[in-house]
């Protein structure tokens, strides 16, 4: 009887001790996902939707290069190769992200030989948890026409806009009240123009997205001008974002789109264009 008790005591000790021995699974840490609530980066895929700026800003240390093109009207037909034989307006641009919220850029547009210097600052960043439900950015820019024979102050225009955007799953919407001022204008033209930019993008998948924009001028407008409208297909190749589009406006920044666009998309006055964006990490 006594020997049986000792046997069971010994067996119990062995079971308890064995249970306390670390096995392979116990030796490992529990794999747990990190809860991230970082600002959403892909509300729009590029810093320019088609002709107007988006809330998207560059990461700190990133350099974005962009090439924007528009051609003549498609209705020019085969004689003008559907607009491609007409003079292209091209803007070459560089932007650099100094922080994740602030960037500075410079670009040059063929038409009017305009060099523009732009800055963008993101005041609010939308987060996936909706702790911040909107993205809010401010853009300021100055354009300098580099035609010869003008006084320096006559060359200048100024621009300011507030961009408010939100991404709903695959759909992103942006509203951009904006104000431009031209120091010099032609007869009957307005020095100041106030507009409301509307932009939208819809992600079809990781590679393709549709986007559109509409820029009505709400103040008294320049004679013969119309509200600009554009539709685009965005293609993300991994390194580049391509935007191929049809647009009424041949201009590449907001002050000139509001002041100079003389065509209406819905009247069949549209042209082909494409933008190429490429970001490089410099840090």
């Amino acid at each position: 009887m006594k020997s049986n008790s000792l046997y069971y005591y010994g067996l119990a000790l062995m079971i308890i001790a064995a249970a306390m021995l670390p096995d392979a699974a116990e030796a490992q840490l529990q794999r747990e996902r990190v809860e991230l609530d970082e600002p959403m980066e892909d509300i729009f895929w590029a810093t320019t939707n088609i002709g107007t700026s988006t809330v998207r800003n560059l990461s700190a240390g990133s350099l974005n290069s962009s090439i924007l093109h528009t051609f003549g009207l498609v209705r020019g037909g085969i004689n003008k190769f559907y607009g491609l034989d007409d003079g292209a307006n091209t803007r070459l641009g560089l932007e650099y992200g100094f922080t994740d919220r602030f960037s500075l850029g410079i670009g040059r547009m063929t038409f009017n030989k305009v060099v523009d210097i732009r800055s963008k600052y993101n005041i609010l960043r939308q987060t996936p948890s909706d702790s911040t439900p909107l993205e809010l950015a401010v853009k300021l820019s100055t354009g300098i026409s580099t035609f010869s024979g003008m006084e320096f102050s006559d060359r200048l225009n100024y621009f300011a806009s507030v961009m408010v955007a939100r991404k709903f799953d695959a759909l992103s919407l942006q509203l951009s009240p904006m104000l431009s001022h031209f120091n010099t204008v032609g007869a009957g033209e307005q020095n100041q123009l106030f507009g409301l930019g509307l932009a939208a993008a819809y992600e079809l998948n990781d590679r393709f997205a549709l986007s559109a924009e509409y820029l009505p001028v709400l103040s008294e407008r320049n004679p013969g001008t119309h509200d600009a409208m554009s539709v685009a297909l965005n293609i993300d190749t991994g390194g580049h974002v391509f935007q191929v589009f049809f647009t009424s406006s041949q201009w590449h920044n907001e002050p000139y789109i509001m002041a100079r666009n003389s065509h209406r998309l819905w009247d069949g006055d549209f042209r082909f264009g494409f933008n190429i964006h490429r970001a490089f990490g410099l840090r």
Partner: peptide
């Protein structure tokens, strides 16, 4: 990586 589109890829 500093470029969100590249991160997604």
């Amino acid at each position: 990586t500093g470029i969100d589109r590249r991160d997604r890829d």
